[in-house]
C-alpha cells in the first residue's frame, strides 16, 4: 500500500512534468533556438573592410534551412571574425562567388550587388550593435 502510494505519486509527478512540457511548447508555438544546431544567436558584426556588416545565423539556419557544413569550413572558418582578416573579403570577391557570394548570386538568394542595406548596417548600426559610443558627437562646449 505504501509502495503503491509512492508509485502513484511518481506517476502524478511525471504527468505534471510532461503536461508542463506539452503545454509550454503549445503555448509558445515555436521551436526554441538551439545554438548547438543553429549557430550562435548573437549577430556576427564585421568591421573590415567597411564597418557594420551584419550576419545573423538564425535567418540562414533555422529560417532558411541551411546546416553548419553548408558554409563551414569551406566558405567561412568557424571562428568568428576570421574572414575579415583576409585581403579578399570584399564585394568583388562576393561577385566572383566567394564567401556570401556562393549563395547570394541572384539565383539561390538575392544577388550580392542588390539590397545593400540588408547586410550593411553602417557605422550607426555598428555602434548600436556593439554598444560603442558614436564618434564625433561630443557635447558642444561654449
Amino acid at each position: 500500500m505504501k509502495r503503491n502510494n509512492k508509485s502513484v505519486m511518481n506517476m502524478v509527478g511525471l504527468a505534471a512534468v510532461v503536461g508542463l512540457l506539452v503545454f509550454s511548447s503549445l503555448s509558445f508555438g515555436e521551436e526554441a533556438y538551439d545554438e548547438g544546431t543553429y549557430g550562435p544567436q548573437a549577430p556576427i558584426v564585421w568591421a573590415k573592410p567597411v564597418k557594420g556588416v551584419v550576419f545573423v545565423h538564425k535567418i540562414h539556419t533555422m529560417d532558411a534551412g541551411l546546416t553548419c557544413d553548408n558554409c563551414h569550413d569551406k566558405l567561412f572558418e568557424m571562428a568568428a571574425g576570421t574572414a575579415e582578416k583576409n585581403a579578399d573579403f570584399t564585394m568583388d570577391s562576393l561577385y566572383k562567388g566567394k564567401y556570401c557570394g556562393a549563395c547570394h548570386d541572384g539565383q539561390m538568394a538575392f544577388a550580392a550587388n542588390t539590397r545593400c542595406t540588408s547586410c550593411h548596417a553602417g557605422v550607426k548600426g555598428y555602434n548600436r550593435l556593439t554598444g560603442a559610443a558614436p564618434q564625433g558627437k561630443a557635447p558642444v562646449k561654449h
Binding site: 557594420g52 542595406t117 550593411h120 550607426k124 564625433g136
Partner: peptide, 25 residues
Amino acid sequence: QNRCIDCERCLEACAKTNNVPSYGY
C-alpha cells in the same frame, strides 16, 4: 542613395580635409 551603406568614409575624409571639428559636420 540605394548604394549608401553608411561606412562613413566620406565623413572621415571631409573632416580631415576641411578640418571639421567633432561637434559639427
